[in-house]
Amino acid sequence: MSTELTEEYLTEFRNLQRELVLLQQSIQSEGRRLLVIFEGRDTAGKGGAIRRFSEHLNPRFLKVIALTKPTEIESKQWFFQRYLRDLPNPGEIVFFDRSWYNRAVVEPVMEFCTSHQYESFMNQVPTVENMLIDDGIQIIKLWFSINRTAQSERINRRSSDILYQWKLSTIDALAQEKWDDFTYFKERMFERTHTEKSPWIIVDGNDKATARMESIRYVLSQCQYRRKGELGVPLSPHTGIVSRYQAKDAHSNQTNRVSPQRKPKK
């Protein structure tokens, strides 16, 4: 079910966006740095959430980064190199519309990387993030989740409506077919890259409007800024929509779906 966009909902949402403006003003004036990573399954609502986050922010102190396929030179560089150049400068907020975590999920599923590249990344990323945090960058990692039925409906809508066809990609087309593979690597990513300093936050994206509201609320709840809460809008996210990753019992994990040691096809 979709959230009904009542006048009450729209008023609360707009006030949350006003709080985001207050947050940006505080970050700008204090020279702080905020990086928000948006990850998740295809069609889970990452792009729409980013648009709502950034809708009323000052673009001079905001960057939305959605990197394309690496160039030949970039593919031979240290994997993190092309991402590091887009980290927030003092006074900036940066939103990564997908991030270095492509190598944790999309690339191994689609066989875009070797097993060595995958393992190297998984071993390095906690250290890289700890270094960035220790240098003063606040990192928030959001994973937008969606169930299989909702994803199928959204993919079908994209393919049938010319207004949304630009969103379709090869990965979208295989999202359903490779659902279990994506699940396997997603869980491995959570297990190996969720840390106390840089935790994974899971957002239920089955209802887009609710996911956008609660993800904004979560980011605001994690940041300190002047005049916080001045508008009277609740800043504690709904725990049924936004939750911190919790490690599962190792004995309950399914390990026979796909091998993480696969290499890309020639």
Score class of each variant (00 low, 15 high):
E129P: 00
P70S: 04
T11E: 10
F80P: 05
L168V: 12
C113L: 00
Q77L: 10
S169P: 03
F190A: 11
L22F: 15
E19S: 12
Q24V: 00
I65C: 09
T6M: 05
G240S: 08
Y225D: 08
A44I: 07
A209R: 09
E129T: 02
A44C: 03
F80Q: 00
L10G: 02
D180E: 15
K197L: 11
K178I: 10
P70V: 02
D249H: 04
E8W: 09
A211Q: 04
F95A: 06
S236H: 13
V109W: 02
F185R: 00
E187Y: 03
S159Q: 15
A250T: 14
Q25M: 15
F144R: 07
V109L: 00
I216Q: 10
A211D: 03
R148I: 02
R51F: 05
T11N: 03
S152W: 04
I37H: 00
R157H: 13
E55L: 12
Q224N: 07
Q261F: 15
E230N: 06
K186T: 15
T11V: 11
R157M: 14
K76I: 08
A250K: 13
I93L: 14
P59I: 09
S99N: 05
L57N: 06
E92P: 08
E129H: 07
E7H: 02
T71H: 06
L231E: 03
L220D: 11
V21L: 06
D181I: 02
N89Y: 11
N102C: 11
R41A: 03
L23S: 02
E74G: 14
L67R: 07
L22I: 12
V109K: 06
V94C: 09
Y118S: 01
P264G: 13
L5H: 02
Y118N: 05
M122A: 01
I241K: 01
P260N: 01
R103L: 04
Q124T: 09
L16A: 08
D181M: 11
R148E: 15
Q151Y: 08
Q138G: 06
E72S: 14
L142D: 08
Q24P: 02
S198A: 15
K197I: 10
K248S: 12
T239I: 14
L231H: 08
Y83A: 09
E39P: 08
L174Q: 15
F144P: 03
D86E: 14
P126W: 09
Q124F: 13
R14H: 13
Q151G: 04
F144H: 08
K63Y: 09
E30F: 12
E230D: 14
H116W: 14
P90R: 13
Q124R: 10
Q24W: 08
I201T: 14
A250N: 12
V203M: 00
S75Y: 06
P70K: 03
I146R: 07
I65E: 11
Q81S: 15
L34I: 05
K197P: 09
M189S: 02
Y101F: 06
S198M: 10
K167W: 07
L5N: 05
S221Y: 07
I241S: 04
I50C: 01
Y101A: 02
L168H: 06
I27W: 11
G232E: 12
Y83S: 05
